[in-house]
Write a protein that binds this DNA or RNA. Structure first.
Lengths: 191, 191
DNA sequence: GGCAGAAATTGACCTATGGTAAGAAATCTA
DNA sequence: TAGATTTCTTACCATAGGTCAATTTCTGCC
């Protein structure tokens, strides 16, 4: 919990009351590998802050193929934001790729925290803004880079994630097959 | 201008003072076709609200190929948000695809408007949240749909945009070539 | 209304990536 | 630690989509 509070305090001043409130709407949990925290079709009531391990969100298409939207490791937030912001049932699944430690928040209380503690407003705004930037960049990368270039960039930007994931997790995040990833690795090794 | 103020008033109550402030930080303009409003490499000081016509933002890759990040028609906002939120020079170009009418805002004043008029906070927050949702959906579509499916969805979601754009604009938004778009259209017509 | 330049189409060919399947390797589990 | 299971690799072939070039069609503009 202190890891998150410290993160927040880097950005904003936090009164003891606000800190107590954050604690009151959250629970620290250890999640076993393979656990599904948010399931497609269900109402999304939680947002997770990852303090250890690795989680991912993905959708499943009509052929049963999975497409990874996001990974989350230490210090990242994860949930189904499409569902939360649109107030719809989940279209994503959020699962635990390794045993992980998380801080689980009530989604509506976390999203609305600025109503009670306005000091959170710049923190939340900044998170949203950075989220938009990273999504814009991802779209541009997807449009202009080859599979191998996207993989190189992934390794560069998220060197810590690969240790937690299966090949097909990464492939499904980058938009190609696990077989292609295998071939890309062989080509890289030749150089 | 009233078109934007009405849009805002659908979401929040707007005091006369707040309304006056919005007017004070913006200018209505008519922009000729082909005008570049934001140029790669330069500092981004403006955000545009489109009231008529069509604009687009795109990046140019190392081979000179353009990749469209966003279109904006009536009632849409456009700028280089990567540059603004990261406080960096523009990586995108924003150009006018047809003669357009826009309301031009000072970026920093618009972004910071909630400091003076807190009633704007939920409006801005909601815009950011919807922005995140639309980007998530676009990424998932890019990951799971074929070129033809993406084009069909584009027509469904943005039926008004095609009239303003060249084929290569749409192709570069959807992530394929204009020649492919031409072939996709032929296939569609056969059915 | 005709001409010049831009855009779109089309066809031939090419390439990156996908699909399948089998075997090898890694990992889990009893 | 052996056996079972999952994951990864590899080889072969298939295909969506890209590239290039020629042609046709559209659009402005005088």
């Amino acid at each position: 919990m202190h890891i998150l509070l410290n993160k927040i305090k880097e950005k904003i001043a936090l009164s003891p009351e606000a800190e107590a409130y954050v604690r009151s709407i959250s629970t620290e949990k250890t999640i076993p590998k393979g656990t599904v925290l948010i399931r497609e079709g269900q109402t999304v009531r939680k947002i997770y802050f990852v303090t250890g391990g690795c989680m991912r969100s993905f959708c499943t298409d009509s052929h049963g193929k999975e497409h990874t939207l996001q990974f989350a490791i230490k210090n990242w937030w994860i949930s189904d934001y499409i569902a939360i912001y649109n107030d719809e049932p989940a279209t994503l699944t959020v699962e635990c790729l390794t045993e992980s430690t998380v801080i689980e928040f009530q989604a509506n209380e976390l999203i609305g925290i600025h109503a009670q503690f306005p000091e959170f407003e710049p923190y939340q705004r900044n998170n949203l803004e950075r989220h938009v930037v990273s999504l814009h960049k991802r779209i541009l990368n997807q449009l202009q880079l080859t599979a191998a270039q996207r993989y190189d960039l992934f390794l560069e930007q998220y060197p810590d994630i690969e240790q937690y994931t299966r090949n097909y997790h990464i492939a499904s995040y980058l938009g190609f097959t696990q077989e292609s990833l295998s071939r890309i690795r062989v080509e890289k090794a030749k150089k």
